[in-house]
Design a protein around this nucleic acid. Structure first.
Lengths: 214, 214, 214, 214
DNA sequence: GATGAATGAGTCTTCATTCAT
DNA sequence: AATGAATGAAGACTCATTCAT
């Protein structure tokens, strides 16, 4: 503990935070198939230091997703607290998440992974927070009634670019498409939405497929 | 020629078509890092049979992208020919492309790759065809004036799910989000779009980055 | 036979000769690990045409060695016939063989191979011819008595450069060392060395060629 | 440092030395196209242990050549230090190098390779050392004036047998030809040839070894 | 008889994971 | 607790050899 204290003072973050941060940015920059060596390099430590905290690469991926879900839940709660208007809360939530991904902090989505007890708990928390944002937005007429919280998360996933983000204009493009989608979500709907609304159980089914990583 | 005829009758497709189809579906299902062995398995032939037609995996990826761009251009031209109304032509084009991706034929987007002469030619063709769709849609008031053809392609990319498509409801979700976006694109725009409109040169810059496949 | 006649008239050589020639030059240029495809390319025919005459690559190597031994025996006999003086016959024999190797016709030496009945017969013939050259040279006082015919062949092997022969000065160097050796073999004493002396820059040029490994 | 000390005591050599030695002997025995697996087997370690020190096979070849050039330069300097007579220094240098090759330490020559900064430096050093041997030998009348240092190295290459060295008489043959060449190089005249004369049976034994092609 | 396509074993190389220090 | 070295299991790619035409 003295060691952790010392380290926290020296670098300002714990080893866990350094690892999760390094892994997250590496996953976004180079895909889920980055080598553990590259992650260790970014974290500024040896690979084995990572392996003691996360016994396998899969465990590390799980931890990163978990941190990402926590991040999303935090942003949803924060948006609700600080923005009384439903439309503005929704907007703030979406842009905060997109910006975080741009800032290499949110490689949560887009890959299936076997379900995990720890992961389920955080997922529930995230679901509740996003649902709250959706409800407030609907109450204020900023969201079509048939749009669900799961919809919001899937849209967030769709808005996360598959193209790398290091081009200077990539961020502006992301905001551009977020705006288009927000326009499409607004209450006076020009056309009825096809298909049934997704709920969180469908989300779980989509994510917890057979395959693990690749 | 007799040989080719016979083979086409027997299996219904040429070896090239079988390979491109197998590689395309494998890329969509499992990502660009599928093994050549898996692609060969799906194509029903040995790996070396693929290697004589496409000397490296990169060449195969290029060929698949090229086929995908051709496919997109064809759908754009077809939509214009068969749908006189701009709004319906746009809709038909988008849904045709999304459906093809669902049908494992369109892993065109999402990965950078070094530019290639052959690829550039097909890309130009695709650009012209999509621009024509965009112009017709604008003329008919079905598209905001500030939306470009490059916008349409990037949106198509965003709508292509990073989650695998083998869940029965995944297709319905995709149509659901396509509808949301189409609503957002319609002329009487509720809010101004942020950021500059992308043109095809920006697209090339995003795609032709330094990294090839990683 | 009509076919062979026709082919001989058309190209001037039989298929066997084309194959042996192509394989020999390929072995000298690129080593014994050239691909059969390259040999077929040089022979101007498909690989399977080679495989019917020589059922395995090993058989082809054996045939090339056999042709090389025949060539050496011919040169020894020819030297004896045309040069009555033992010293000049020896010289002519050595230089003829070295020149043939330079002309990509003699990759006989330098690799082990399982013994073969056909090969043994030709080998005997070659042995006799070289021994005759050695005896004539000794009789004329141009060779130390303790030097054998086997010595001559091994020296020929040693004089065959492991460095590729495509540098313009490589041939001159070869004659230079042949002369040094002949001086060492002569009963009384030396003569002037032919060819320019190499310097380190030439050495670099010889070593730093295009090819890396094989 | 304690670690290195320990390992040196335990196995007598560092990992680098084990690898270079194993690779050198493998290159001499089986050619430059030995598999990395065979080299690893000889070095008594896994292939990946080699790959971290030498990231590619080419790098390993370069390192072996570099070690060989260092070895030659050392022998040249040593010969000059310990043998005041030019004739004996030259002889000692040549025989030391030939013996080292017999001892599987000198696969320096005979294959082209792309130039490398590190390699060039060691090459220069070797050049200077060999030139010094040549000059001393000329000053003592043991070398024709027109013979250069580069001549000596090329002769060393020619004397290095393309036939594998594992036959018990191969070493004696090598000394036999070295003596012939030294006789040819000497200003006045010959000396007696060492070693027994080979006969055709020995030749067969040399050629008909176990291996076929590679 | 001759060709081009196809195959399976083998080679170099990488990487998640473990072990000695 | 932390590191650097080591390993074994893949993966991309090649090539001698065979088969259908």
């Amino acid at each position: 503990m003295a060691t952790e204290e010392h380290q926290r003072r020296e670098r300002g973050v714990t080893a866990e935070e350094r690892i999760i941060g390094a892994a997250g940015s590496a996953f976004i920059d180079l895909g889920y198939d980055v080598s553990m060596a590259e992650i260790a390099r970014r974290a500024g430590m040896g690979m084995s230091a990572i392996y003691r905290l996360y016994p396998s690469k899969n465990d590390l991926v799980t931890a990163v997703r978990l941190a990402g879900m926590s991040f999303i839940a935090d942003r949803a709660r924060q948006a609700l607290e600080e923005e009384p208007d439903g439309a503005r809360a929704l907007e703030r939530f979406l842009f905060a998440c997109l910006g975080a991904r741009a800032g290499h902090m949110l490689p949560v989505l887009g890959r299936r992974q076997a379900p995990t007890p720890g992961l389920d708990a955080v997922r529930e928390e995230m679901h509740r927070a996003i649902d709250a944002v959706a409800e407030r937005a609907k109450a204020d007429g900023a969201l079509r009634p048939e749009v669900t919280g799961a919809d919001l998360l899937l849209l967030l996933d769709h808005l996360s670019p598959s193209l790398p983000l290091d081009h200077p204009q990539a961020l502006l493009l992301q905001r551009r498409y977020a705006r288009m989608v927000l326009d499409g979500l607004r209450t006076p709907a020009p056309a009825a939405l096809p298909g049934p609304a997704p709920d969180w159980n469908l989300m779980k089914a989509l994510w917890d497929g057979r395959r693990n990583q690749d």
